[in-house]
Simulated scan of single mutants.
Amino acid sequence: MSDTPTQSHTDERIKTRSRLRESLIRPELGGMIGTIVVFAMFFLFASDSGMFSSQGVMNWSQVSAQFMIIAVGACLLMIAGEFDLSVGSMIGFAGMMIAIFSVTLGWPIWVAILITFLVCTLIGALNGYIVVRTGLPSFIVTLASLFILRGFTIFFPQTIERKTIIGGISDAAVGDWLAPLFGGKILTGLFVWLGENGLIATFDRGSQQGKPVVDGIPMLIVWALALVVVGHIVLTRTRFGNWIFAAGGDAQAASYAGVPVNRVKILMFMFTAFCATVFATCQVIEFGSAGADRGLLKEFEAIIAVVIGGALLTGGYGSVIGAALGALIFGVVQQGLFFAGVESSLFRVFLGVILLFAVILNTYVRRLITGER
């Protein structure tokens, strides 16, 4: 009878260690820790500057949403074992196509948006097809796409309009049924009520007196949250999500097991292009113009957000929630430096430091998973 308690006690110790190990290798862990540290730091050093006022929260939320949209696509693609370095150029290209179609050619804005989505997702499919058919590294294929798309983004407006910035999109979008899906706001009535009851800041002078400083949630944020939710559900609750992990973990073994590896990877390239086009559409509708320099370095920022979120560079491991937290960290830090009165160029320094730290952490996590030394 004395053996039973001893055995039970031993089993509990093993179970406890197992749970601890599982918590340590969760991909979201680094993003969670980073988010807590960043918020704590700016709460201490920038809370008096208005960073956590309604306007301040909206500022860094919108910046975070930009990173989040492209990070979701990059995350799923990286888990599938591939990279897309053309994301930034795709943003600039998509925005310019919408401007040329709607302003230069005079098409309805909804037609311009839909055709742009079709063209960009087909380009994503082409990138994926070249990768799976030739066996070339996606790094090389999409690097070529980066230069091709950026070149076209500069060439088309210069040839047609003799300039690299095309405005007038706001006028073209007036009365359009699709444009508000990317440039509108939701819950405006709620924010008016909050302002009237003194729960959020309102304008105290001029024609806007009495109106809330923040009058709604931009569709950019709605798109970001929707993509995170859908991406997380697909990755963790569906068979296709298992296929994504399998394609990035061991493509050959997955293929032998019946996983359509090539189709999965092509679809992930298409989804990455879709996310970049969502970003571009929200951007041009908000600014009312498209520029040939839009999207510069966004591909690297998306990859860094995903790495901070716990994804392994070797594929087969990662989390959409982690990538979203990485994007949130970016947005908070970028705006937090401004509120704290720190030189904004140090944001790039932060990106380099956090990337190095995330890669070291992920290497340690990979060794925990595989048992390597």
Results as ranks from 00 to 15, higher is better:
residue 272 T to L: 02
residue 291 G to L: 08
residue 275 C to T: 15
residue 277 T to W: 11
residue 276 A to P: 04
residue 282 C to R: 00
residue 269 F to P: 09
residue 290 A to N: 01
residue 267 L to R: 09
residue 268 M to H: 06
residue 285 I to K: 03
residue 283 Q to I: 04
residue 266 I to L: 03
residue 275 C to E: 09
residue 261 V to S: 02
residue 284 V to Q: 04
residue 261 V to R: 02
residue 272 T to S: 14
residue 266 I to K: 01
residue 272 T to G: 11
residue 285 I to L: 15
residue 282 C to H: 00
residue 267 L to S: 09
residue 289 S to L: 15
residue 285 I to M: 15
residue 286 E to G: 05
residue 269 F to C: 06
residue 267 L to W: 04
residue 290 A to G: 06
residue 274 F to E: 07
residue 262 N to I: 01
residue 265 K to G: 03
residue 290 A to H: 00
residue 290 A to E: 02
residue 265 K to E: 06
residue 289 S to G: 12
residue 291 G to M: 14
residue 289 S to R: 14
residue 270 M to P: 04
residue 272 T to P: 01
residue 267 L to Q: 10
residue 269 F to M: 13
residue 290 A to D: 02
residue 276 A to G: 07
residue 274 F to V: 11
residue 268 M to V: 06
residue 279 F to T: 03
residue 271 F to V: 07
residue 265 K to A: 05
residue 262 N to W: 02
residue 290 A to K: 02
residue 273 A to V: 01
residue 278 V to F: 11
residue 274 F to K: 10
residue 292 A to L: 12
residue 288 G to P: 15
residue 278 V to P: 06
residue 285 I to S: 12
residue 287 F to Y: 12
residue 262 N to Y: 06
residue 280 A to I: 13
residue 289 S to C: 12
residue 272 T to E: 05
residue 288 G to N: 07
residue 272 T to N: 13
residue 279 F to A: 04
residue 268 M to Q: 09
residue 285 I to W: 05
residue 263 R to N: 02
residue 276 A to K: 02
residue 283 Q to G: 00
residue 288 G to Q: 10
residue 281 T to Y: 10
residue 265 K to I: 14
residue 283 Q to S: 13
residue 270 M to H: 11
residue 263 R to L: 12
residue 278 V to L: 08
residue 286 E to S: 13
residue 273 A to G: 03
residue 291 G to D: 14
residue 262 N to E: 09
residue 288 G to S: 11
residue 269 F to D: 05
residue 283 Q to H: 15
residue 269 F to R: 08
residue 278 V to Y: 08
residue 291 G to V: 05
residue 280 A to N: 10
residue 263 R to Q: 06
residue 287 F to Q: 11
residue 266 I to P: 00
residue 283 Q to Y: 12
residue 266 I to H: 00
residue 274 F to W: 07
residue 271 F to W: 05
residue 273 A to Y: 02
residue 279 F to Q: 03
residue 280 A to R: 11
residue 279 F to W: 10
residue 284 V to T: 14
residue 282 C to E: 03
residue 279 F to Y: 15
residue 273 A to S: 06
residue 287 F to V: 15
residue 285 I to V: 15
residue 263 R to D: 00
residue 278 V to R: 06
residue 276 A to H: 06
residue 270 M to A: 14
residue 271 F to G: 01
residue 261 V to C: 04
residue 265 K to M: 09
residue 275 C to V: 09
residue 261 V to T: 04
residue 283 Q to V: 02
residue 275 C to R: 04
residue 262 N to G: 10
residue 273 A to Q: 01
residue 281 T to A: 14
residue 279 F to G: 03
residue 267 L to Y: 06
residue 268 M to E: 07
residue 270 M to S: 12
residue 284 V to F: 10
residue 287 F to L: 15
residue 277 T to N: 15
residue 292 A to T: 13
residue 265 K to Y: 06
residue 285 I to F: 12
residue 275 C to W: 05
residue 275 C to H: 08
residue 292 A to F: 13
residue 276 A to M: 04
residue 281 T to Q: 11
residue 292 A to H: 14
residue 272 T to Q: 08
residue 291 G to W: 03
residue 291 G to Y: 07
residue 281 T to G: 13
residue 270 M to G: 12
residue 268 M to C: 12
residue 268 M to W: 08
residue 271 F to P: 03
residue 263 R to T: 09
residue 276 A to Y: 07
residue 285 I to A: 10
residue 285 I to E: 12
residue 292 A to N: 11
residue 286 E to W: 09
